[in-house]
Amino acid sequence: TEELDSELELPAGWEKIEDPVYGIYYVDHINRKTQYENPVLEAKRKKQLE
């Protein structure tokens, strides 16, 4: 659920942004990119696909 997503600790260099226009998204300051999917959940999903 969304509530559990926010409890996950983000990897180093990541920041969660709550924007009133664009909603919640994540900033990867190391690689200078943004995405809507939580990077922790993304990594778990990719691992399940292997």
Score class of each variant (00 low, 15 high):
1 T>L: 10
4 L>S: 13
5 D>L: 13
6 S>E: 09
6 S>P: 05
7 E>L: 12
8 L>G: 10
8 L>A: 12
8 L>C: 04
8 L>T: 11
8 L>D: 03
8 L>W: 10
9 E>D: 13
9 E>W: 03
9 E>L: 08
9 E>K: 11
10 L>S: 04
10 L>Y: 02
10 L>F: 05
11 P>I: 04
12 A>N: 09
12 A>D: 11
13 G>E: 04
13 G>Y: 09
14 W>S: 03
14 W>E: 04
15 E>F: 01
15 E>V: 04
15 E>N: 03
15 E>W: 00
15 E>I: 01
16 K>P: 00
16 K>D: 01
17 I>T: 07
18 E>L: 06
19 D>K: 02
21 V>D: 06
21 V>P: 06
21 V>H: 07
21 V>I: 13
21 V>C: 13
22 Y>K: 15
22 Y>H: 15
22 Y>D: 11
22 Y>R: 14
22 Y>E: 13
22 Y>M: 05
23 G>H: 00
23 G>D: 00
23 G>S: 01
24 I>R: 08
24 I>E: 15
24 I>Q: 08
25 Y>N: 03
26 Y>P: 04
26 Y>V: 01
26 Y>E: 08
26 Y>M: 02
26 Y>D: 07
27 V>Q: 08
27 V>I: 09
27 V>P: 04
28 D>H: 01
28 D>M: 00
28 D>E: 01
29 H>W: 03
29 H>M: 04
29 H>P: 03
29 H>Q: 03
29 H>I: 05
30 I>P: 08
30 I>W: 04
30 I>R: 10
31 N>E: 04
31 N>F: 01
31 N>C: 10
32 R>D: 15
33 K>M: 07
34 T>C: 14
34 T>G: 03
34 T>V: 07
34 T>L: 02
34 T>K: 08
35 Q>H: 02
35 Q>P: 01
35 Q>W: 03
35 Q>T: 14
36 Y>G: 08
37 E>T: 09
37 E>R: 04
37 E>K: 06
38 N>L: 06
39 P>D: 06
39 P>L: 02
40 V>A: 15
42 E>D: 08
42 E>M: 06
42 E>Q: 08
42 E>W: 07
43 A>C: 07
44 K>T: 08
44 K>H: 08
45 R>A: 08
46 K>D: 14
47 K>N: 06
47 K>R: 09
48 Q>V: 10
49 L>I: 07
49 L>Y: 12
50 E>K: 07
50 E>H: 01
50 E>C: 15
50 E>Q: 03
